Amino acid sequence: MTDYRVTEGQTNSPWNLKGIGMTSQRTRNRMIERLQEQGIENEELLTLMARVPRHIFLDEALSHRAYEDISLPIGHQQTLSRPWVVARMTELLLEMPERPDKVLEIGTGSGYQTAILSSLFKQVISLERISGFQPKAKQRFQALELSNIELHHADGYEGWNEKAPFDAILVTAAPASVPATLVDQLSETGVMILPVGEGEEQSLTRVTRNESGHTSDVIAPVHFVPLQQGVV
């Protein structure tokens, strides 16, 4: 597992990683208590989410709301998912019979989910169709000393075939149906976690690859921005 060190007064970071006031450790701990009340049980994940400075993945004007149980705008008409969604999607990967080594993420955004995955899995390849997100995401990963993330400006619908197959795929925006291209890039027993549906009719879904194709099971109702094709 990749770890990172949070030190006060870190000179190479433009952010206060430890946080103060509404971004302090006390506020983060309250977020963890809410996650436990909402059914998140994996202790390793909860410990990690208590430590990750979620506030640095938002613009400064919104950073004081980072540990509330809400989704928040990050620009380009995209959002940072609420903590429970990040936790549940990640926990579903941790429930796999064998922990994935190589994970493909569709939708880097500001990088929070990427950082969580990076700290739990050996290799993370993250695709983002909006080029404007990537420079600051890279700065955040450097500040957190995360070195196992490979970023690409690419169409998430196409996946990243040159590094396939993947043990797991996590999609952070909602396609209308499960993309066959992404299913094809799963390993023989791989799992994909994604929201599926349009408008208000979306379901968090687990897709499991098997010898005869794949199976899908619905986890919970969710609301994500739509997964769009192409790059900008």
Rank of each mutant, 00 (worst) to 15 (best):
R54E: 00
H55S: 10
I56R: 04
F57N: 09
F57L: 09
L58Q: 13
L58E: 05
L58M: 08
D59L: 12
D59P: 13
E60R: 09
A61D: 11
A61M: 11
L62G: 11
S63P: 07
H64W: 14
R65E: 15
R65L: 14
Y67V: 08
Y67R: 00
E68D: 10
E68S: 11
E68W: 12
S71W: 04
S71A: 11
L72T: 00
L72I: 06
L72C: 06
L72G: 04
P73T: 01
P73K: 08
P73M: 05
I74L: 13
I74G: 01
G75K: 12
H76W: 15
H76V: 11
H76M: 05
Q78S: 03
Q78P: 04
T79V: 09
S81Y: 00
R82D: 07
P83G: 02
W84N: 11
W84G: 13
W84C: 13
V85S: 09
V85G: 05
A87L: 09
R88Q: 12
R88V: 15
R88Y: 14
M89K: 03
M89C: 06
M89P: 01
E91M: 13
L92E: 14
L92F: 09
L94D: 05
L94K: 03
L94A: 09
M96N: 02
P97Q: 04
E98D: 12
E98H: 15
R99C: 10
P100M: 07
D101T: 10
K102A: 14
K102S: 13
K102V: 13
V103L: 06
E105W: 03
E105D: 08
I106M: 08
I106N: 08
G107Y: 11
T108L: 06
T108N: 00
T108Q: 01
T108E: 07
T108G: 01
T108V: 11
G109W: 01
G111F: 05
G111H: 03
Y112R: 05
Q113H: 05
Q113P: 01
T114I: 06
T114G: 09
A115L: 08
A115Q: 03
I116L: 00
I116E: 02
L117W: 01
L117N: 00
L117H: 03
L117I: 03
L117V: 07
L117Y: 02
S118V: 00
S118P: 07
S119C: 08
S119M: 04
S119H: 00
L120V: 06
L120M: 01
F121G: 04
K122M: 09
K122Q: 15
Q123R: 10
Q123W: 08
Q123A: 10
Q123Y: 10
V124W: 02
V124S: 04
I125H: 15
S126D: 03
E128F: 06
E128S: 01
R129Q: 08
R129F: 00
R129P: 07
R129S: 07
I130M: 12
I130S: 06
S131A: 15
G132R: 11
G132D: 13
F133L: 14
Q134G: 09
Q134E: 13
P135M: 10
P135L: 13
K136I: 10
K136L: 12
K136G: 04
A137M: 08
A137N: 03
Q139S: 11
F141L: 14
F141Y: 14
F141R: 02
F141D: 02
Q142I: 05
Q142M: 10
A143P: 12
A143V: 05
A143K: 05
A143W: 00
L144V: 00
E145S: 15
E145K: 11
E145H: 15
L146T: 08
L146M: 11
